[in-house]
Design a protein around this nucleic acid. Structure first.
Lengths: 139, 139
DNA sequence: TTGCGTGCAAAGGTTTTGCATGGCA
DNA sequence: TGCCATGCAAAACCTTTGCACGCAA
């Protein structure tokens, strides 16, 4: 029989982890460390494979920041009204800022209507300088 | 004395390569292959290091497609005119679209005022699906 | 039983780094 | 003479894959 997805213990554990961390972002490594520290380690490959499935299911978002940073995941659950968030990456300190902003969402509409381009916020990262680095006088 | 950047033969070679390839995009590997086939190979590390410098100077853009694909670079030269140019990259066909749009410029102001983040348009790329690929039904 | 899930290790690929040498200013 | 640039190889890094075994349905 082909159900496609089994309800395994690890999948349950992951779901529970997601629920407890809420909308926070995490990397595959974060997940692995978390379970390892609790004595119930999960293999890296398993985490990747489960997350990939969940991305396909649409209950997890995957953000690609840059080539040398690990991918950033976000659990969104079954929320039909979930806002995809935007990311700003500081070119100086490397800090990643997550934004849920209505005004930025307007960019998507604008790009589609005026430029016929369907924006993918999951892959789009705004580069620039964060407030702290700017204050520090970084150039 | 500290000028910061030396005018080496390799740097000149790279510049010439960029001029001849125009606005086309290229990977580090493309560059290496090109010079290798002409008998004047350049080390991979050197290409990475020079390109990194040029990105800092703002004369080259670096695009991240996804974690397992090589980074894509684009020579943009000395954009002396103060007209900020935005880029949209199609995830399907790889086409790069250049936009001069007032409304998009507003993003910079918004990010700065509301989120205290100084956007760098030269390094920011909007990822998504272009009109042609959308029409073709690509998913 | 069938087929998916898992763990481990190894492989895959891109990018960075250490170190000695060579070149620009 | 001072830096900076380069080459080579090794290292670092994230991610995927092969394979044998375990578990869900």
């Amino acid at each position: 029989m082909r159900t496609g997805i089994y309800k395994t213990r690890h999948r349950e554990d992951l779901m529970e982890y997601f629920e407890t961390t809420g909308a926070n972002h995490f990397t595959v490594n974060d997940v692995c460390e978390y379970f390892k520290s609790r004595g119930s380690a999960i293999g890296t490959a398993t985490v990747y494979r489960q997350l990939e499935k969940m991305v396909d299911e649409g209950i997890v978002n995957k953000y690609i920041i840059d080539a040398n940073s690990p991918a950033c995941f976000e659990y969104i659950g079954e929320h039909t009204h979930h806002d995809v968030c935007f990311h700003c990456k500081c070119e100086k300190c490397g800090k990643l800022i997550h934004l849920h902003c209505e005004e930025l969402k307007a960019i998507g509409s604008h790009l589609k209507q005026e430029h016929d381009f369907v924006l993918d916020p999951k892959r789009t990262v705004f580069y620039g300088i964060c407030s702290e680095c700017a204050a520090r006088g970084a150039v």
